[in-house]
């Protein structure tokens, strides 16, 4: 996600601490940073949420419009997720068309929401083959201090949960809240040498060898996964990461649900 360098001193410090089960910001290895959710932040959007995961700050706005369904899914609404890594958020972000890391990020967030069937998209069909609701999830990263995968996902889920479809203005009856049926929570773990750290901070993320994002639903079932970076995991590590994702997911889910 970035070309910035972590000094050898900091690398050694992070690793030395982590090998005794500690982290620079005082967390345990399997402990995420504090999550705060600010709902209905943007009144021009149909739904919105500003989420802080530690110092990482993400704003998601949901816009809805009416359009044509894809020919292969004539009875379901359309979901479109995009991420903008705006240059405000980090000295390493530049303006311009989305780079591969932003595209991966958007697709991973999208996958968690789509595959968990969080929103019942079939109920967003107005006239089969002709008219459906189109959901735009626009993710604006405001301050990048590590682990965008989870921060963006939390903000998107919280924003969707607070979204009210503007049916009245389209002449389609009364406004209605989105049919939310499931609650995906994404939890990302970074691997530094042989150590696994949940919700990596910026420095941890930059020195990580590998990364695994696991999205689980309210039953603890896995709905999406994405491995990143050039390192590898053992199967035992993967299992541990999934178990941690289920546990951390249980803690975080109520924060995204409450309104």
């Amino acid at each position: 996600m970035s070309e910035e360098i972590v000094s050898e001193l900091m690398r050694a410090h992070i690793y030395r601490l982590a090998s005794t089960g500690q982290r620079v910001d005082g967390r345990g290895l399997d402990q995420p940073r504090k999550v705060s959710v600010d709902r209905a932040f943007v009144k021009t959007a149909e739904g919105s949420a500003r989420v802080k995961l530690g110092n990482t700050d993400v704003l998601v706005g949901i816009k809805m419009s009416v359009g044509e369904p894809y020919p292969d899914t004539p009875n379901t609404g359309v979901l479109s997720t995009s991420v903008e890594l705006i240059p405000m958020a980090s000295p390493t972000f530049e303006a311009g068309p989305p780079r591969p890391d932003a595209i991966e990020l958007a697709r991973v967030v999208d996958r968690g929401i789509r595959e968990s069937k969080m929103v019942n998209m079939e109920r967003l069909c107005i006239t089969p083959k002709e008219k459906v609701w189109i959901l735009f999830i626009d993710i604006h990263v405001l301050d990048y201090d590590g682990n965008l995968f989870d921060a963006c996902s939390y903000a998107a889920v919280a924003a969707l949960a607070s979204t009210v479809a503007p049916a009245k203005s389209q002449g389609l009856g009364d406004d209605f809240p989105l049919p939310v049926e499931h609650w995906p929570v994404s939890v990302t773990t970074a691997k530094i040498k042989e150590l696994l750290l949940v919700d990596p901070s910026l420095d941890e993320e930059r020195m990580a060898d590998a990364r695994l994002t696991v999205t689980t639903d309210e039953n603890g079932d896995i709905r999406a996964m994405q491995k990143g970076l050039s390192g590898s995991f053992t199967y035992e590590e993967v299992k541990r990461i999934i178990e941690t994702a289920q546990r951390v997911g249980r803690d975080i889910r109520p924060l995204l649900q409450s309104s």
Partner: peptide, 18 residues
């Protein structure tokens, strides 16, 4: 300076980008 509007900042979604 780069002035940018978020897609959700206005009532009809603005296409991202300048």
């Amino acid at each position: 300076c780069r002035y940018n509007m978020a897609p959700f900042s206005v009532s009809d979604r603005k296409r991202p980008g300048p």
